[in-house]
């Protein structure tokens, strides 16, 4: 039993650290789709957020040698969110004002982000990896880490970003379901013409939706880079797409999204820690097989949940105020 407990104390923080950025980016996807715009550029926005935040962190640790690493991380997360917002503006402009195909414009953003990150890193450093290698993990949160059960799970080997993400997720549930703005956002995704007839500015609301997704995905990218990657190399390996799949399998509902994110984090845990799992490590399967797992699981989950999709009805359609 004791062995089991220590094993759980080992894996639960890892699941949590996988789950937080995944849920955050999926939440970003929720904002934009609820407002009626599909944004598969989450991946590219994450790359932009991750790149700029890690680059900023590199500069900050150089300028202020004594600065606490957690403050650097906090600033990095904010810069990631800011860059994500600015970058997603291009997608918002194309898909809202220009009524263009939202998938094509988002694909352009995805390609641009990786090319830009690699190009800039190579122009500055000569190679694609950024030289930021600090550990951003918090070993133990003072006082709280000594609470039984909760302490070892939530307050040891934790990341600052996880706590911020929990706050944002809670706030978002209030915004989406308890405020006027949330109601307007959802109405623009279901029936924008009806919303406009009641005096809602559909363009403005959709801009808010897309920019919110940009901010969250940008911050998610920063959190991803600070959590998983020692030297960021201009790639988040489909994490943004995975978040999109989490949102779809979560049927566009925050609580279900959390549950699905938990499931996927477990899959990612299997993928990265397969050799430390009792039972699995004796099978001696190639590690790539486990790495495929999250993606294969997505396919299977989607195949069983998409038949009766609960997507916002107007998501993906350019707004045409004259349409009946």
């Amino acid at each position: 039993m004791n062995e089991f407990a220590s094993f759980m104390y080992y894996i639960l923080p890892i699941i949590l650290m996988n789950m937080a950025p995944l849920a955050l980016v999926a939440l970003g996807g929720l904002y934009t789709e609820k407002s009626g715009v599909i944004n598969i550029a989450l991946e590219g926005i994450m790359v932009m957020g991750a790149f700029t935040s890690v680059y900023a962190a590199t500069l900050f640790t150089g300028w202020f040698a004594g600065m606490s690493i957690q403050i650097v991380v906090l600033i990095g997360l904010l810069i990631g969110a800011l860059l994500g917002t600015i970058f997603s503006l291009t997608h918002a402009f194309a898909s809202i004002h220009m009524k263009s195909n939202q998938i094509i414009s988002a694909t352009a953003l995805n390609l641009f982000a990786v090319a830009f990150a690699v190009f800039t890193a190579r122009t500055i450093y000569g190679h694609r990896r950024l030289p930021f290698t600090e550990t951003t993990m918090i070993r133990e949160v003072p006082f709280l880490s000594s609470v039984p059960i909760i302490g070892p799970v939530f307050f040891t080997n934790a990341y600052l970003s996880t706590y911020i993400i929990v706050l944002i997720f809670a706030a978002s549930m209030v915004i989406l379901y308890k405020t006027k703005l949330g109601l307007r956002l959802r109405s623009c995704g279901e029936h924008p013409q009806a919303a406009e007839s009641l005096g809602v500015n559909v363009y403005k609301i959709r801009y808010i939706g897309v920019l919110a997704s940009g901010a969250l995905a940008g911050m998610g990218g920063a959190a991803y880079a600070f959590t998983f990657q020692r030297q960021f190399g201009g790639e988040v390996f489909g994490f943004g797409f995975l978040a999109l799949a989490v949102m779809i399998s979560g049927q566009w509902r925050p609580m279900r999204i959390l549950l699905v994110a938990l499931f996927f984090s477990f899959m990612r845990l299997l993928a990265t820690q397969s050799d430390s799992f009792p039972g699995l490590n004796q099978l001696n399967l190639p590690s790539q097989l486990y790495r495929m797992l999250p993606y294969v699981a997505t396919l299977v989950v989607l195949a069983f949940t998409s038949k009766k999709s609960q997507a916002p009805r107007a998501a993906g359609e350019p707004y045409d105020s004259g349409k009946r």
Binding site: A94, M98, S105, T107, L109, L111, F112, A115, F119
Partner: peptide
């Protein structure tokens, strides 16, 4: 690659 990405963006427009 950057040029290609920008071209895709403008062809979306």
């Amino acid at each position: 690659d950057i040029i290609i990405a920008v071209i895709i963006y403008f062809s979306a427009l």
